[in-house]
Design a protein around this nucleic acid. Structure first.
Lengths: 226, 226
DNA sequence: AGCATAGCTTAACGATAAATTAACACCACT
DNA sequence: AGTGGTGTTAATTTATCGTTAAGCTATGCT
């Protein structure tokens, strides 16, 4: 695993912690950027999407929980892993953290070995697919930076879920994606929505792009054809 | 998928959890048995091997991790799937769970939908044989990921059963498959359909691929020739 | 030749998956 | 609070697929 490919965002208001964690993780080869409160973190994510965020909970200006929900509300942030840092004495329950979408939870005082071990373990699970590059396929262009698609040179704006669904299908033209795959990739493995939800989104895409760009294979799934 | 042929063992010391999980899974059609600690679980497995075990971690008498290692030490238990249940507040390390041979990990409080979805997904993995490889045979190409057949460089779309049937026959060219084999592999062991059904599907394939790619051996079965 | 057997063909029916529609819930932004 | 966009669900309709039944055809056997 090439650790230098991974970009971590570290958010804490105490400079000591920042330095300590930063030192230990950059020594592993990870790319680190930092923010000193939730608001800064959100801004950073908007500019540059990290693979994993280490987020303190108690912070001035904007706390970690709030920041995470704001970040998760941004498009294309489904696959960012969240690790909360917290002092043992703090009142926040771990529960609330997991509800907010945490993938792990590290208690202060932080032990370097445990830190590194956990982060490594989490990142090992990511299979990094670059959903930030524009897909160009026939007369369709998908531009993730602007969240806009261009079909036969007219621009169509799609809402988040529709965009990500189309992006997934178009990432492998002609490949059939079954419903489970789609749910896992677009909605995330813990989010369970009804099966019909997918249909509805497919329908909306078809409606907006007036062409049978997505074909359905009954009993199997959907696939994108150019 | 016939869920009634899957046997799940549910292990937890809290009767409420047992009842809740049991209700939700048996409603799906699964066969459920229960145990209220690790020791009981091991005894149950010795008597009757389940397909999947839902195991709480914190339990009196014998905890989940220990129980799982004891179970895995028994002969013929390698293919039992293990799902750990854990309270979020527990200072768990998911890692330890996965090392102990866990296939998945569900945190309490358990949401019915997530529970059912995960279990379904895991069990679907069990009877998934390797029918994902592209078969190329003479002028015929079967591509399961794209779900298309290409015969003499023109594409043919087949519905699911026809596709699977052709895939089976083409997986071993020149081998004669008798009707029982075909029924077992394409329809499943305990699905009973009439004999004529196979004929009809064979006919439809022949119709769509205009060539005598499948030849019938009267009184024996069918075989694929290139 | 006549009959039996196994498979072929066709059409019709029922089951099942997906399409569609409408309603609702939820945010973000006024 | 009100509004519009987004995402989800539930209910209904539609279309396709799978299955069955019935009659037909070819082949083999006495």
């Amino acid at each position: 695993m090439d650790k230098s490919k991974f970009h971590l965002l570290l958010v804490d208001d105490e400079p000591d912690i920042i330095e300590f964690v930063s030192y230990n993780l950059s020594r592993e080869g990870y790319q680190i950027s930092t923010a000193k409160n939730g608001l800064e973190a959100v801004e950073q994510v908007k500019k540059n999407k990290p693979d994993l965020i280490l987020m303190d909970i108690m912070m001035p200006v904007m706390d970690g929980m709030t920041a995470v929900s704001k970040i998760k509300a941004l498009p294309g942030t489904n696959d960012i892993m969240i690790v909360f840092l917290t002092a043992r004495a703090e009142d926040y329950s771990q529960e609330a953290g997991f509800e907010a979408g945490a993938d792990d939870y590290i208690s202060k005082p932080i032990k370097p070995k445990i830190l590194v071990h956990r982060i490594n373990a989490l990142l090992r699970r990511i299979n990094k697919t670059d959903n930030n590059k524009t897909i160009e396929c026939g007369s369709l262009i998908i531009d993730p930076t602007k969240y806009v698609i261009i079909y036969q040179s007219n621009e169509v704006v799609l809402p988040r879920k529709e965009f990500e669904l189309l992006q997934l299908l178009a990432s492998h033209p002609n490949k059939v994606f079954n419903r489970d795959e789609i749910l896992a990739k677009v909605w995330g493995k813990d989010v369970v929505v009804g099966d019909r939800t997918i249909d509805v989104h497919i329908r909306k895409i078809r409606e907006k792009i007036n062409a049978n760009i997505i074909i359905t294979i009954k009993g199997v799934g959907y696939k994108f054809v150019e």
